[in-house]
Amino acid sequence: MAKSKLRKTFVEPLGKNNPVFVQILGICSTLAVTNKVQNTMVMTLGVTFTTALSSWTISLLRNHIPSRIRMMVETMIIAAFVIIVDIVLKAFYPEMWKQLGPYVGLIITNCIIMGRVEAFALNNKPLPSLVDGFASGLGYTYVLLSIAVVRELLGSGSIWGIRILGSWWTNWSIMIMPPGGFFVLAIIIWVIRETVMKEESHA
């Protein structure tokens, strides 16, 4: 029983409760780096790490946090985890850290993290909260990664920096420029809502 519930907690954010499609949350901080798959991967891993651990920590403290300063405490804990991501990147992946620039810090304001903390972690035990945060992060990761794959492939003819399309391919520069991000995200949301979500609402 408990196991199946945990499973449900894990699967839902990946499919029909995906934070990006359903709530269009949290795209701010990462969309800007989706013109390269590699950068996107690192950013989304950072978001997953932060979401999972903040949810877990806040769930541990949930019965002790005074309600009037709840938001401040949550922000503080999220920020601490983001600083950890920032320090680790700076020390061990300095090149990636330089490329991502200010975007690592912006994970703090990623609405998904605060969203999961408020909606789930405050009312659930630590383990389910950890799973929920982790799964939400993964659901977020694959959507952002698919955006990045499309953008990098069409915009630079490569994936993960490796040239895939031959020299016959003319790069669609618009894809690596800001408007490309808006269009690709819109199209992906459209496709998912027309296919996956429609079936589910009929069922």
Binding site: I65, M72, M76, I77, I84, V88
Partner: peptide, 24 residues
Amino acid sequence: FMFVTTLLCILLTSGLHLLTLDRA
């Protein structure tokens, strides 16, 4: 509560920062 959380967060991150300072 706020004070303790802040202190813990700052201690944790500062420790990590000092540990990786040479490397950075």
